[in-house]
Amino acid sequence: MKKDYSPHEIIFRDKKRLEEEFEKFENFPPDLKTLKPWVILAGHYHNSRFRLSKRFPDIYENQKVKLITFVRDPLAHHLSMYKFGKKKGHDFVKGLSLSDYLKKDSNFLAATLECTLENYKSRIDGYFFAGIVEEYEESLRQLSNKLGKAMVEKIPFENQTNSNMLYESLSEEEINLFRESNKLDYLIYTYCLTKLQSNVV
């Protein structure tokens, strides 16, 4: 696996140094043509400066690359990110209550995957595989089958943030408001889930 994760403020606290690292990362993406067929390039492309199509301009048309993503229930994802951000001291949650944070970055998933209401189905269909975090074992089974590989015997679980208490602290109004503000994310998630379930044997 080759990592392609952008710099962040936890490592580079000085803003000038962070911007320098951003520019290095932005201007020197990996050359996809040099990657061996068995190499997995892994990264997060949620920062608007480093969207997948900005980093690799022909990525969605490149037939030699197999795009793989995993999506998660949008609210569960936000709760996990909030808890993770607070634990690590990230700027994106600094000074924000959970209620305030849930009002930020509406349709985060759609922005990250560069989806619109008009193209989200074709965008997801363009991926070699879209897994579901809540259906992790089944997702890995189907991905293994598509790759012609044996299913792993023991599935590792890392970076877990049990967010049940955060969910229980939300009011019905807050949950409904989040769902209303993230309609596109839920359409994407539901579409990916339906595709996965349609292949369950």
Rank of each mutant, 00 (worst) to 15 (best):
K83F: 03
G131K: 03
N27K: 15
G89Q: 04
D4Y: 08
N162E: 12
K103F: 02
F28D: 07
Y189E: 06
D91A: 13
E168I: 10
E9Q: 11
G89M: 09
K154Y: 05
L41W: 06
R13I: 06
E20I: 05
D4V: 02
M81I: 02
K16W: 00
R13D: 04
S171N: 03
S122P: 02
K64E: 14
H78D: 12
L52G: 03
L140W: 02
K66P: 00
L67F: 12
R179A: 10
E174L: 15
K154V: 02
S99K: 14
P57I: 10
V200T: 11
S80R: 07
G131I: 03
F178R: 07
V152I: 15
N47A: 04
K86C: 06
S163N: 15
Y136L: 15
F12K: 09
L187A: 11
F28R: 09
R17G: 00
E172P: 00
R13F: 00
H77E: 13
S122C: 05
A76Y: 12
T161I: 09
S163F: 10
K149W: 10
K16S: 10
K24I: 13
K64I: 00
F92Q: 08
I68A: 07
E137G: 01
K33C: 12
V201W: 04
Y101M: 04
F70N: 00
Y120C: 03
H44W: 05
K149H: 09
I40G: 00
I124P: 05
K24L: 14
K88W: 01
G85D: 07
Q197I: 00
A130E: 02
R72K: 13
K16V: 15
Y60V: 00
S169Q: 06
Y82V: 12
S169L: 11
E174D: 12
K121A: 01
Y191W: 05
F25M: 03
D100M: 10
F25A: 07
R13K: 15
D14Q: 04
W38E: 15
D58W: 04
K64D: 14
D58G: 13
F92C: 08
P156G: 03
A130W: 01
D58Y: 08
E173S: 14
E114I: 01
G148F: 13
I10A: 14
G131A: 04
R49K: 09
T161R: 08
Y167F: 15
L41N: 01
Y136P: 02
L109C: 08
I155H: 06
Y167T: 07
V65H: 00
P30N: 11
W38H: 15
F28T: 10
A111W: 02
F108Y: 13
K149R: 15
E138T: 12
R141Y: 11
